Amino acid sequence: MASDRLGTRIASARALGAARLADYAWRCDKRGADGTAKANLAPAPGAETWGVLYEIADADFAALDRLEGGYERIEVSVWRDGEPVKAHTYLSTRLVDDEAPAEWYLGLVLAGALEHGLPAAWIARLERARESGDSPGTGEPIVFDDPGNHCFGCSPHNERGLRLAFTATGRGAVETRYVVEPHLCGRDGVAHGGIQATLMDEAMGHAAHAAADAGEDLDIATIELSVRYRRPTPTGEPLTIRARLVRSEGRDLWMEGEIRDAEGRVCTEATSRWRRLRQSASTRSAPSNAGA
């Protein structure tokens, strides 16, 4: 993403600014020539990836393809200043199983994100990945499709519910895109505050499940929830909802989350504390609200 790095390779490259790619998760699982993991994309409904949109002369694409060895160039639609734009990006099927990206490599990615003013939450995610040395995202969907699950927030079987589904973007982190229907408003055109609180509660509960060990049945409930409404959250427009684990101590998990509008502005922020009720080796249970 860094202008100087691309500019020395492709003379015609001109940065246009930050852009958002929907329904793709950013991962570091492409096998690099040095054996370490490099950036990659994977289709993941509800996920999103932030990057930098460049204008490049048609004659330079062949050279760029050679530089991006091991990747396939594909055409996508990205969002720039609230408008869709056709663009090209790269993904790879030459994957590594458990190699981490090099610290210097994540440093280059982070430098490009800072240079072009990518959203603070995305930069924080890159910083966490650099500090931990982990690959920043799995793209694994989290769906509670048990026929006995009738949760208003996440059940795919509740016809009157929100039917939320989240994608894991790393251990203890999730995100999704969602459009609040106009009839779920407070003031016309603005999502009801209770609906926003539900979106946050669901996101943070799913993030707790994303932090669970493989095979762990994490039966949890909300015991504290705090929501801050920073700006009107629109109905009828795609929202980005994210949550992550802040810390875990004993039976309790502390979470945080946010809702952003189509232009990437933070509309709602929330924090919560969840408590483990029981654990077993059986199927996971959907998160619940202790007050319900």
Rank of each mutant, 00 (worst) to 15 (best):
E99W: 10
P234I: 04
G161C: 05
D81I: 01
T235F: 02
I241F: 05
T49E: 06
P287F: 03
Y178P: 01
L41F: 06
C185K: 13
R284D: 14
D34F: 03
T93H: 11
M204L: 06
A286P: 03
A210F: 14
A168D: 06
S132R: 05
A120P: 01
D23N: 15
D23C: 05
V85Q: 14
G250H: 11
I56F: 06
D219P: 08
E224H: 14
R14G: 10
D252C: 13
M255V: 03
T167P: 07
T235G: 01
V85L: 10
E103V: 02
F152L: 08
I259F: 04
R230F: 02
P232V: 11
A63W: 01
G35T: 02
G112I: 04
L253K: 06
G69E: 12
T222I: 03
Y105D: 02
R276L: 15
H209Q: 14
R230S: 06
R94P: 00
I10E: 03
D60F: 02
R128E: 13
R230T: 03
E269L: 03
V174Q: 14
P232K: 06
R20D: 01
S282I: 04
R128F: 05
G148T: 12
L21E: 12
S272R: 02
R187Y: 09
I74N: 05
A11V: 15
P234R: 00
D98V: 11
G264F: 02
E48R: 06
E237F: 04
R128Y: 06
S282N: 09
W50F: 02
M200K: 05
S135T: 04
Y54I: 07
S288E: 11
P287A: 10
A281D: 11
W79R: 09
Q279M: 04
E55Y: 07
A120K: 13
D4L: 04
N158P: 03
P45H: 14
T176P: 01
D4E: 08
R231T: 04
A13E: 09
A208N: 09
I220L: 06
R273I: 08
A62V: 00
A100N: 15
A290H: 12
H183F: 15
A22Q: 13
G153Q: 02
L126G: 05
G170S: 11
D81Y: 06
P234G: 08
A168T: 05
A2D: 09
L225C: 08
A210C: 15
R20P: 00
L67R: 14
A47M: 12
G32E: 00
R275F: 13
G153S: 04
C151G: 02
D97A: 15
E175V: 08
E140A: 11
A102P: 01
D219Y: 08
V180E: 00
C151D: 00
A270D: 10
W26N: 02
W254C: 06
V174K: 14
H157Q: 09
G117Q: 02
V143P: 07
Y71F: 00
P119H: 03
G112P: 01
P234T: 03
C28M: 09
G215E: 12
P232A: 12
V190T: 00
G112A: 08
T36K: 09
R125C: 07
